[in-house]
């Protein structure tokens, strides 16, 4: 999974980018991934100011509107890609048309069969995946 992280700096840079230009550069990047047979899924997230944060620091969870203010890095979207090595994932990420200040994190998605199969909750999750066609 490629996790895209925006920062205050990159959000500001993005605001200054022409929307159509951004669509085109992202579109080209996505198209390259598709043509290479690598892209399995992708989602981007809406404006962080429209989100809600639930903070578990205190005794009871505290709910606040808007972005998660304390950290500078915001989770902004994800891609699921099918590549042969982590190096290849790195090379793909390096080509992404990200604005200055953005960050990307690369993580492996474990398969459900890597969890203990005799666990009741793992079995329940498997049943749900089976019904809904999840990863």
């Amino acid at each position: 999974m490629l996790i895209w992280r925006a920062t205050d700096e990159s959000m500001a840079a993005m605001m200054n980018t022409d929307f159509n230009e951004m669509l085109e550069s992202m579109g080209r990047f996505n198209d390259e991934l598709i043509r290479a047979g690598v892209l399995l899924a992708a989602e981007g997230l809406d404006d962080p100011s429209q989100g809600v944060v639930v903070d578990f620091t205190g005794e009871t969870p505290e709910v606040t509107d808007g972005p998660y203010g304390e950290t500078k890095e915001l989770f902004n979207g994800f891609y699921i890609i099918d590549v042969a090595s982590i190096q290849e994932a790195v090379e793909w990420v390096k080509r992404a048309p990200m604005t200055v200040g953005s960050k990307a994190e690369i993580r492996r998605v474990p398969s459900i069969d890597e969890f203990p199969q005799d666990n009741e909750w793992v079995q329940k999750e498997r049943a749900w995946r089976e019904q809904t066609g999840q990863l």
Partner: peptide, 13 residues
């Protein structure tokens, strides 16, 4: 075979 282990995303694709 344990059909619960089948990759549902691959089936969907």
């Amino acid at each position: 075979q344990d059909r619960g282990l089948w990759d549902r995303a691959a089936i969907r694709r």
